Amino acid sequence: MQIIDGHCDVLYKMYEHPEIDFFDPQPAKLDVSYAGMVKAGIKVQCFAIYLPERITQPQFDHYLEYVDIFFRRIVSDPRIRHIKTRTDLEAVMNGKQVGALLTLEGTDALRGNSLYLRIMHDLGVRLIGTTWNHANWAADGVMEPRQGGFTRRGKRFIKECCDLGILLDVSHLTERAFWDLAETADKPFIASHSNVLALCGHPRNLNDAQIRELIRRDGRIGITFVPYFVRAASQGNATIDDVLRHVEYLCAMGAQHQITFGSDFDGIQQWIPGLEKAEQYVNLVHALQRRYPEELVRRFMYGNWYSFLQKRLPVQ
């Protein structure tokens, strides 16, 4: 079974721990590794540029350090292909290489500078989440107390991303910012790693109105493995069956063509038993196969992501 995963924080781990080798057969500090991807059948992994909170004044050079890690220590290996275009995507899905798609989580250091945005695009960034949990120059993140939306510069940024063909990710936005983006963007958008609010009341999850909008816009919803986004701690420990509850809820809303997965591996300190590392994706696949037809499982694991990227990435 092929898999496309919409979010991981491997680059953050490699930034914090320069000794980490992505190609080590058993890297002690990584949830996602090359060996794990191959074992699981992960054909495409999205790698996020996420700056640690200890960097209180993010600079554009910080992003370039992450890009440097991505180029030198991941996609420089011939077994990995940097996915920037539909041609790259097709080559990976039909060949022996695995693919790496570069994303940005939080735009603090872009500071509304269109030149910086174009440089990130030229370096291969194809998906951007405007905020992490807090506010920046463009919008409020979901944990910002004022719960505001996009600024005027932020709305201009949305339009610039759409013009460049950069995909937009709403996973860390406030609800007001979500609707600002929905009103401003003229292209479909995604939630790369968010779950269902009705099943787990964490503010990072999506309410039914947001889910309906993502369905209407033919976006994508990446169910994530963060335990406290899957099941409230007061209700007990999250399990793979709880992940399937989110799948079932979304299916009941008519989101069969929107469901994807965004593990958030390497960005979490708690794990669902049986989903602690990338290679354990097989456990989720088997659980889905016991409940859903094979064609639908293939959609969830890679088909829905593939169809979205095949339409939205640059042709070449």
Rank of each mutant, 00 (worst) to 15 (best):
N133D: 11
K39L: 10
E295D: 14
K29L: 15
F22C: 06
Y249G: 01
T56Q: 12
V142P: 03
R146A: 15
L181A: 06
E276Q: 14
Y50P: 01
H7P: 08
I119T: 13
W132R: 02
G219V: 09
W132H: 11
N237M: 12
V230P: 13
Q57C: 06
K29D: 14
I268A: 07
M93S: 06
R111Q: 15
G254L: 11
V10M: 06
V196Y: 08
I20N: 11
T85C: 08
I55M: 10
R156L: 08
Y15H: 15
F265W: 10
V282A: 14
L244S: 07
G148R: 03
P78D: 14
R72H: 13
Q2E: 06
L51N: 05
P314V: 04
E16S: 15
L11D: 03
A209R: 15
K187R: 15
C251Q: 10
A100R: 02
G112Y: 09
T131W: 00
V32W: 10
H202A: 09
G106E: 04
S192F: 01
C251Y: 10
G6L: 12
T224C: 11
A185I: 01
T174L: 08
V38G: 01
L64M: 14
E213H: 09
M93F: 10
K155M: 09
K29M: 14
Y12E: 13
Q269E: 14
L181K: 01
G201R: 13
R73H: 13
K187F: 07
A138T: 02
A232W: 01
E65Q: 15
D88C: 12
G154D: 01
V142M: 13
F71E: 12
I259S: 06
P227K: 09
P227A: 11
L197G: 02
Q2Y: 05
R118S: 07
F70S: 02
C46Q: 13
D77R: 02
P203G: 03
A91C: 08
Q258L: 04
H257K: 15
K13M: 13
V92L: 07
L51H: 09
L197R: 15
I223M: 07
V98M: 05
T174M: 10
Y63C: 08
A198W: 06
